[in-house]
Every structure is written in structure tokens, then in C-alpha cells.
Simulated assay, not measured.
Amino acid sequence: MRVFVAGGTGVLGRRLVPQLVARGHQVTATTTNAAKLGLLEQLGADGVVMDGLDAASVGEAVAHARPDVIVHQMTGISMEHAGKPDFKHFDKWAVPTIRLRTEGTDHLLAAAEATGVPHFVAQGYANWNGIRTGGWVKTEEDPLDLVEGTAAYTSMLALKHVEDVVLAFGGAVMRYGGLYGPGAVDDQVELIRRRQFPLVGRATGYASWVHLDDAASATVLAVEQKARGVFNIVDDEPAPASEWLPYLAECAGAKKPYRVPKWLARWLAGQVAVVMMTEARGFSNEKAKRELGWRLSYPSWRQGFAEELG
């Protein structure tokens, strides 16, 4: 197939493009930086400079590529686009990604409709944002938590927008867990090594992780099978912060994280960080395994962290 990957030079795009090429697909991948066109060529794609927030730029790029499917991987969470992660002011830090998930998604869908692209696959998120009632592990049937009243609310609304409009188009949303792998957790590991990433309270909040290569392989399956609906793309072991954070520190050769009370974490890092570390829910991957036939190379973050950082 002709596959159009919007956001081909991000941490996930760099792992996705080679997998698509290896499966025999003709890939056009976008970047906002002309200096990265050479990287896309090395990955096996036809590179194109595109501004995801410019409707004309998006429309022209899609029309020229004439794809059979569009894969939306555009975010603005890199240091280049958003600066250092700032959980206390999450709403301001996340503006580039919020715009790409609202305006950018709308531009891509409009281009798909204008050029007759029949299928659409978009990046979603399933890590700490499951509804904070009931059990600790959520399926696709459980609603996402909009965390109203916190600085993450606008980001959660943007994710809801992605799901609403992509599902209305008849596409698929891949709710990736916390991504790790080459280049994906460098900032977090650096904070851990500086002992600036503490455990909060009892650290009972869950996270769901997924290796970049497994996230990419699930996306390839969604492309090839013309999948529709929402899929949680996470590994087999959702786990509380009290387990994964000390283990990540150990794998990184760092000292054990400090533990701070919730009131102090709220003052230092904001309510979003407290929710993540104490109340967050994990996610189940059973649907993706069952419907897509997805098989993980890294079934657990324990194996993945050790291999990446050991």
C-alpha cells in the first residue's frame, strides 16, 4: 500500500517507517524540518516537509502522495517543540501537541476526504488516564479520564477530539502506553539519575508501558488490516509506580528514588503529577491481541528496561 506517515521523524515514526518499508509498503513520511529529509530517506521513505497546522501544506502533501492510508503520528512533545516537560504547567507545555491533535487531525482528515483516502490510523494515549473508579486495569470499554480541574484537562480534551473525529471517519486510534526505547525516555532517565523523579505518597498509581518497536508493529497491523475502532497498545504488565520507577532507576544505574508526601509533590510539580503517581489506572491489551493478532517482542517493561538500559 501507499502509506502516508505524518510525523515520520518522531521517536515512534523512526521505528514505524522501517517496519512499513520492510513489509513492502511505499511510504511517504513528513517532517517539519528540511534537515531531516535525509533521515527519512535512510529509513526508506519519500520525505516531505509539511506543517501539520497549515491546512494548505497538509492538503498539498497528501494530494501529492495519493496514499491508501494516513497514519497520524504528529506530536509536539519533543524538547525541540515544547521544551523541558513541565507537569505543573501541563496545559501550557502541551500546547504544541494539543494543536496537532485538534487542528492537525482535522487538517489530515479534511485532506483524506478531499483526495479519497479510505483509511486513517491515529495516535492516541493510554497510560495514566483511565477513569479513576473501579479496578486498576481498564479496557477500551472504559471511558478515559478527562482529569477535570487539573492542568492536563486540555490535553485530555484533545485526545477525546482525536478519538471522536477519527472514529466518525471510520478509522482506528492506537492508544499507546508510555513509550520507551531509543530516545523515548532519555529525559525521564536523566531526572531519575539526578534524583529529581521521586515516588509520591504510596506510589499506587499505575502505568502501562510499551516498547517503541511493539507500538510500531501494532500500528503496521492496523494499517494492513484496515482496522477500525480503539485499541490499547500496551504491554502485558500494568504496574504501580512503586514497582516500575525503582526498577527503572536500578536499570539506569541510579540511586533509589526519594519518596515525598502528596502535599509536597502537589506544591512542587502540580496536581497532574500527584494523580499520575497515586491514582492512575493501567490498561489491558487483550483486544489488540485478539483482533489484530498482535504479538509483543517485549511483553513486560521489566525485560524492556533491562535491555534498553542494562
Results as ranks from 00 to 15, higher is better:
P18Q: 07
G7D: 02
T30H: 06
A22M: 08
L39F: 02
H25F: 14
P18W: 11
T31K: 06
L16S: 01
R15I: 12
G10V: 12
L16I: 09
Q26L: 15
G24R: 06
K36N: 14
G13F: 10
R23M: 04
A6V: 03
H25Q: 12
Q19D: 13
T32P: 00
T32F: 08
G24H: 02
A35K: 12
G10D: 05
Q19P: 00
L43R: 05
A45M: 13
A35G: 12
V27C: 11
L37I: 10
G8K: 02
R14S: 07
L12Y: 02
N33V: 07
G24T: 04
T9G: 01
V27L: 13
Q42M: 12
E41H: 10
L16R: 01
G24C: 01
H25Y: 11
Q19S: 06
T28P: 02
L20H: 01
L39Q: 14
R23H: 14
N33L: 09
V27S: 08
T28L: 10
V5L: 07
R15Y: 00
A45S: 13
D46N: 13
A6L: 05
K36A: 06
V27P: 06
G7L: 02
R23W: 07
L16Y: 04
L39M: 11
A22E: 15
A6D: 01
G13S: 06
T30V: 07
